[in-house]
Design a protein around this nucleic acid. Structure first.
Lengths: 151, 151
DNA sequence: CTCTGATAGTCCGAATCTCGGACCAAAGTT
DNA sequence: AACTTTGGTCCGAGATTCGGACTATCAGAG
């Protein structure tokens, strides 16, 4: 990514700005509720599937090395947000799952997210908001490294 | 940011996924042209205004401390991509400006960005693509920490 | 004009983060 | 059964990031 902020900024930056806004809002909400979780941990935590995720998948999703995600999961585990369980499908693997305390994070995040989305909606109007969501979902089909067989 | 990837993911993640895709594409293009620039440097570089930017503004935009941005600018400067010039308006400040070599990065990035945008457009269609852009521009008005359309 | 508080940037040092390399165990393949 | 791939961990080193402290300059009040 390298582009000067011209009069018509590229879509990458345009996507990034509201993303980061949302992220900051959620992090602030978590902090306000006493969960002082670092950003890198939150970013990995966010990608954990409710049914459990493998380390390597999380590493792919977050574009980090296995070692890095391993150490982040160590910290999340030590803080009590996740647990490592054996994967019944593969004796080598372990499933990272969310604990009750981890679910607290989600329950705090959800209203924070909705609040930001509501603020956006009142700025954009309902039509454009739902357009935004549906367009982004369509875009995900060709840009999500996990969801696309491409690459 | 902390939210399980439910069936209807929050707008934050939905924004992030294509953003990351674009970023990776640009970084790959830069690497292919022999510019092996780290991601954190690229992210700061991207925010440099063509007319020159101050360190503190870059720090705000990137949500990093002044010291961190200072050290990143050190590296960009050492690599020849930017230069520090005195700010004629303020003797305390210095303007980070882009060198000729730095403009190479931009000239490589631009077609890479356009290529990704074209791929998106062929998936979304022209109408939704322009809707996306205009919606994101509207969103920027309330989410950009550097919310200064006019200064 | 001088004092005071805020601002732009740098230096230093320490904690943290990240990853390459090496390794093991369990799958998967032939 | 041998061989290769895959999921994960351990170790250590280099890089990153930031808090704290400092200088220089600006802007405002008196």
């Amino acid at each position: 990514m390298a582009d000067t902020p011209a009069e018509d900024p590229n879509l990458g930056l345009l996507l990034f700005i509201p993303y980061r806004f949302m992220e900051s809002a959620v992090m602030a909400a978590l902090r306000a509720h006493g969960h002082d979780i670092p950003l890198n941990q939150a970013r990995v935590f966010q990608r954990i599937d409710p049914a459990g995720s493998r380390l390597a998948d999380l590493a792919d999703a977050a574009q980090l090395s296995k070692q890095t995600v391993g150490s982040i999961i160590d910290q999340l585990e030590k803080a009590g947000y996740v647990r490592r369980e054996p994967d019944p499908e593969d004796a080598r693997a372990r499933l990272v799952t969310i604990t009750a305390k981890g679910h607290e994070l989600i329950e705090i995040s959800l209203p924070a997210v909705r609040q930001v989305e509501a603020a956006w909606e009142s700025h954009l109007g309902p039509t454009r908001t739902s357009q935004l969501r549906s367009i982004l979902k369509a875009l995900r089909e060709i840009t999500d490294p996990l969801a696309t067989p491409v690459r």
